[in-house]
Design a protein around this nucleic acid. Structure first.
Length: 928
RNA sequence: GCGGGGGUGCCGGAGCUCGGAAAACGGGCAGGGCUUAGGACCCUGUGACUUAGUGUCUACGCGUGUUCGAAUCACGUCCCCCGCACCA
């Protein structure tokens, strides 16, 4: 089977027929689904295809169920990623370039990426043509849109004016990264604006003021509650600090700290420098404990973090503990008399967690910075969450509470202050140290708004949210979600913030209402509506029905919108659970009337590499064009749907994908061979119809519930199994087979659409496209579960005979089967009625006149039946003789032996005395 | 700590809503067949013991309880994963 040829052939047919173009059709119900559009950031890998595949499978199914489907897509280009890539190419970043090459990007294209616009247009095309179309996604490509498009930006501005009308835009203080030369900049992993420090976190430090004569030596800490364990202070002897006037006080701090404070609204003036070594050996008064402690030399404090001075709590801070140990070796005189002070009791640790973990991790010196970081994190986490104070005024209190209490006390008493600082040095591209600046006019969307939150929570309760667990989380997420900065200053790509010059709408806030825009983008893309025309008047009319249409086209858009809205499902990866989905929901609630709010959310988990999430840097991500070639699109699609539930991470496993390819091929060949079988009525026609119906029904219900896995399981494996058995049993009723295969192939279509089309045409000689065929309906069938009792009986007998063959160590030449006498079914009836109670069963059976001839056998029989009570519970009575009689031919072929069938009470011959052993559904068997 | 989700064969995982011979379905492994060079296909087996089958025992993290009957319900307990933010 040539998957590759099939893919090209049928995709072409789909595009030609335009079955992916969404059209308003008022005679049909509508279905509107989007996936969270991808951030445009270079090549995608096999992991990305999971969610897209779900989207396509769902919408293909809905289309076959008679819905008019809108399945659009777009590109999220705002933010900093495209600029970051352009920069990496300009810088000749080898890893990035190699990754592009490995994904088949031509060299000259890579070169052009120096211009972020070229980068974007290349990937718009690649996502569409190399990924989405190649996977056969029936996306309405006429509606493709980018968040940088002119019309889209008009739409975002309209959205923000709506938010403003709803009083949800506010300005307030915010601390964010700032370069004294270049202004606001981004500190993120892509390190677009900065030279180093992409991983830095923004943290609020407590500044502890240590009195030393008339001035204060100031140390920064994240753990004010540990002041009770202070033994000394650490200073870097090799650097220069500054003496600065802060308000009315004089502080000794690092130069970088002084800079930082300047930007945080402090009245500060640098007076002079202080050499670090001058401080060594001096004593200062530790705040909180009011004890004199020495200032000691160390190498780990960083002048760019906090104040460049660190208070030492060796009981609970691994860095401090190790630095002390170092000193003990090099300069024991300095540390004489310093003892660890127990301050906090945490789960799993004794009095001195820092000491314990250093010993555990075998950390020997301050130079092992990475391990020390890890140890610190661990101790911090455990201490914060499980620790209790065992000293000081808050003894007995949990650390999580004590932390704030201690800090507030110290600040109130003038012994401490606070400051924002990065967790590691951040240097701007210009070479300047990045500071954290206090802005007092940062724009926020007021997601904390009580009314908005409550409305969203109420509404979410009635939404279709998959999986159920996320639905449970949603109220918590909505409560927890606070005001969020929605605009930025600096080198970001995005829409101009309409209320304030110089601000750019940030990339989460411009991606909340966009399903609305796909209605308009169709007309923007075909030129019917120009971006200049997209005024507030336009949007108010088409979305809200306010005002009058200026042109007939507006009415057209309005009609479309009324037809397609609200959105049925927004589908996205689990990374969106705590940001995108809540803001998506809340923005809808904030600016639109309730009837337009989205009906459902679908969250799926990831495809991971063997070691964690597939990432570009670590490699291991299989490029998509290569994967398509190796596995075939249909196999990959089936793999995504079947390999695990959507709410579970799956590890990418190439061997497993191959097994799906083979399963598909097997099914195709099975369909083919069934159609070729000679026409014959078979004893299993009713059985196969009944079971097909069961599976069809189960798959249909599963798809209605967005459970692609169960559906794929029934379709790819379940039906396949039944049909194999049907074939093995001699099934070949031409008319029935054609109907079976016809229905089955239609069920393939959402999952393996190319193979389905191929089979639809090549095997069934159908004319139209199966992708737009009707989803199959159930067979008319009178059969009930008793057909399975019969077929189970045949399978069980076959198995039992095989067991016996094995035990006797010889193949059967002749098999005699004895079907239980009718009166044994009567006895079974009594056992059932007694529901497991042997005495009752026995009593009723022995008083049954119809059983009076068999009194002496009753006791053993009832005992045996009773022990199988649970098994018999839901078994239907079948005429075993009729069933087996129709299967003797089959059995003798399977076993290559003569098979004879008898009634227990008319055994004919019974050399093994097996007739009497027969029970209902357990015939006696003699093998010769 | 808070919130959410979990602990079932060699592995991935069904089953839990609504209690009724646990292990569906896939994978792996083993034996056989069939052909052969296809990542094929078809049988059969895969907790232990036992046996001319329709038998016994052990098993759903651990412990209790409710029940004729518990992976499923209840209580307790241990462990694991994810999120805890301004990052898309």
């Amino acid at each position: 089977m040539d998957f590759k040829a099939m893919e090209g052939k049928w995709q072409k047919a789909w595009w030609k027929a335009g079955i992916n173009d969404a059209e308003v059709d008022t005679s049909k119900p509508k279905y509107y689904l989007i996936f969270a559009y991808p951030g445009v950031s270079g090549p995608q890998h096999v992991g990305h295809m999971r969610g897209y595949t779900y989207s396509d499978v769902i919408t293909r199914y809905k289309r076959m169920k008679g819905f008019s489907v809108l399945f659009p897509a777009g590109f999220h280009a705002t933010g900093i990623a495209p600029v970051a890539y352009a920069k990496k190419i300009r810088d000749g970043d080898k890893q990035t370039i190699d990754y592009m090459k490995k994904n088949g990007v031509p060299e000259d294209a890579i070169g052009s990426f120096k211009d972020y616009k070229k980068f974007l247009s290349y990937w718009y095309k690649a996502y569409e043509n190399d990924y989405w179309r190649r996977f056969g996604f029936l996306i309405d490509y006429r509606r493709l849109t980018s968040t940088l498009g002119a019309g889209y930006q008009k739409f975002i501005q309209w959205q923000f004016r709506k938010l403003n009308e709803a009083n949800l835009l506010i300005q307030k203080d915010n601390y964010s990264a700032f370069c004294p030369n270049d202004g606001p900049i981004a500190v993120d992993a892509s390190e677009t604006d900065i030279k180093c420090g992409g991983k830095a976190e923004k943290l609020e430090f407590t500044l502890l003021k240590f009195k030393m004569g008339d001035e204060f030596v100031v140390a920064a800490t994240l753990r004010p509650e540990t002041v009770y364990g202070q033994t000394n202070m650490w200073v870097r002897p090799d650097i220069d600090y500054v003496r600065a006037r802060v308000g009315k006080e004089t502080w000794v701090i690092s130069r970088e700290c002084a800079d930082n404070l300047k930007y945080q609204d402090r009245d500060i003036e640098v007076l002079g420098t202080v050499k670090g070594e001058e401080l060594v050996g001096k004593k200062c008064l530790a705040p909180g404990v009011e004890r004199e402690i020495p200032i000691l030399p160390s190498s780990f404090p960083d002048p760019a973090v906090g104040t460049g001075l660190v208070t030492s709590v060796p009981s609970d801070a691994p860095f401090d503990y190790i630095a002390l140990e170092d000193l003990k070796r090099t300069n024991p005189e300095l540390v004489k008399g310093i003892e660890l002070i127990p301050i906090i009791k945490s789960r799993g640790y004794g009095d001195f967690p820092a000491k314990e973990i250093c010993e555990q991790m075998n950390i020997r010196s301050q130079n092992e910075a990475e391990k020390l970081e890890e140890a610190t994190k661990e101790i911090y986490k455990v201490g914060f969450h499980t620790g209790r104070m065992i000293t000081g005024p808050y003894e007995g209190k949990r650390v999580v509470e004590a932390k704030d209490l201690v800090r507030d006390d110290l600040i109130r008493d003038g012994k401490a202050d606070s400051m924002w600082s990065f967790s590691e040095p951040v240097v701007c591209r210009c070479g300047e140290h990045v500071v954290i600046k206090k802005f007092n006019d940062q724009w926020f969307i007021k997601y904390s708004d009580r009314e908005l939150t409550d409305k969203a929570k109420d509404y979410a309760e009635g939404m279709d949210i998959v999986p159920e667990g996320y639905k449970e989380e949603m109220p918590g997420v909505l409560d927890w979600f606070e005001d969020r900065p929605c605009a930025r200053q600096g080198s970001w790509l995005g829409t101009k913030f309409p209320l304030d010059d110089g601000w750019i709408v940030e990339p989460i806030s411009d991606s909340t209402l966009y399903p609305m825009y796909y209605i308009v983008s169709l007309y923007e893309n075909n030129g019917a509506i120009k971006p200049e025309e997209m005024t507030d008047e336009f949007f108010n009319y088409v979305y809200l029905g306010i005002g009058k249409p200026k042109r007939p086209e507006w009415e057209r858009v309005r009609k479309d919108f009324e037809y397609w809205y609200p959105l049925d499902v927004n589908l996205g990866g689990k990374e969106h659970k705590t940001v995108h989905f809540p803001v998506f929901l809340m923005n809808h609630v904030a600016v639109l009337p309730g009837v337009l709010w989205p009906r459902g959310l679908f969250v799926h988990w990831w495809v991971t590499g063997t070691a964690g999430k597939i990432s570009k840097s670590k490699g291991g991500a299989e490029p998509i064009p290569q994967a398509i070639k190796r596995y075939s699109v249909d196999a990959m699609r089936t793999y995504y749907c079947h390999v695990a539930q959507s709410s579970v991470d799956v590890a990418w496993d190439p061997d497993l994908v191959f097994t799906y390819k083979e399963a598909l091929r097997r099914n195709y060949l099975l369909a083919e061979s069934l159609l070729e079988a000679p026409d014959a009525r078979s004893p299993v026609d009713e059985w196969v119809k009944y079971n097909f119906n069961q599976r069809l029904e189960k798959a249909t219900l599963a798809l209605d519930d967005y459970d692609m896995r169960t559906a794929a399981d029934e379709i790819v494996y379940g039906i396949s199994r039944d049909l194999q058995w049907y074939k093995r049993r001699g099934g070949g009723n031409r008319k029935l087979v054609k109907a079976l295969v016809g229905k089955w192939i239609r069920m393939w279509a959402p999952f393996a659409p190319h193979m389905a089309e191929e089979a639809w045409h090549a095997l069934l000689k159908e004319k139209g496209l199966v992708s737009v065929a009707e989803w199959p309906s159930l067979f008319d069938s009178e059969a009930d579960a008793s057909v399975n009792s019969g077929e189970d009986l045949v399978q069980r007998i076959l198995g039992d005979i095989r067991d016996i063959e094995k035990i006797r160590g010889a193949k059967a030449k002749k098999v005699m089967v004895y079907v239980a006498a009718p009166w044994k079914w009567l006895a079974l009836g009594h056992v059932r009625n007694a529901n497991g109670n042997f005495g009752d069963a026995m009593k009723n059976a022995s008083s049954d006149p119809k059983l009076s001839d068999h009194k002496k056998l009753l006791s053993t029989l009832i005992k045996r039946l009773n022990s199988k009570m649970n098994w018999y519970r839901d078994k239907k009575e079948v005429d075993e003789f009729v069933v087996l009689n129709s299967a003797t031919h089959f059995l003798s072929e399977e076993l290559d032996a003569k098979v004879e069938l008898f009634h227990e009470d008319k055994p004919g011959e019974d050399p093994g005395h097996k007739a009497g052993a027969a029970l209902p559904l357990y015939p006696g068997i003699h093998v010769a």
